[in-house]
């Protein structure tokens, strides 16, 4: 019974993190949302009795993807609509 409640809470957290990373405007927090989605997904894989897949998703999805996106944000822009706002100001 406890196991089912924990699984439902994790599923709701997964959906909430995914929606948050799509809607929010600050790109750094959006990327962290993607990292949380990978973390919960890796736990789900472990609960479905697939430890290999869980280890792969943890190593690649949490660490590497987040870091590469953060490096890209450092080189471009942190705010999602910054360029559109600048264009609108000029007009």
């Amino acid at each position: 019974m406890i196991a089912v409640i924990i699984i439902i809470i994790m599923a709701v957290l997964l959906l909430a993190a995914a929606i948050y990373s799509v809607i929010h405007r600050d790109l750094l927090f959006a990327v962290l949302g993607t990292g949380i989605v990978s973390l919960i997904l890796s736990l789900f894989f472990y609960l479905l009795q697939a430890p290999d897949v869980a280890l792969t998703e943890a190593a690649i999805g949490i660490a590497l993807t987040t870091i590469i996106f953060i490096i890209t944000i450092r080189n471009t822009t942190r705010d999602e609509d910054e360029i559109i706002d600048k264009e609108n100001e000029k007009l």
Partner: peptide, 14 residues
Amino acid sequence: TPGGGFQGGTIVAT
């Protein structure tokens, strides 16, 4: 054990 080339290589890269 669970693991393998891809997983281990990624951990070293981290």
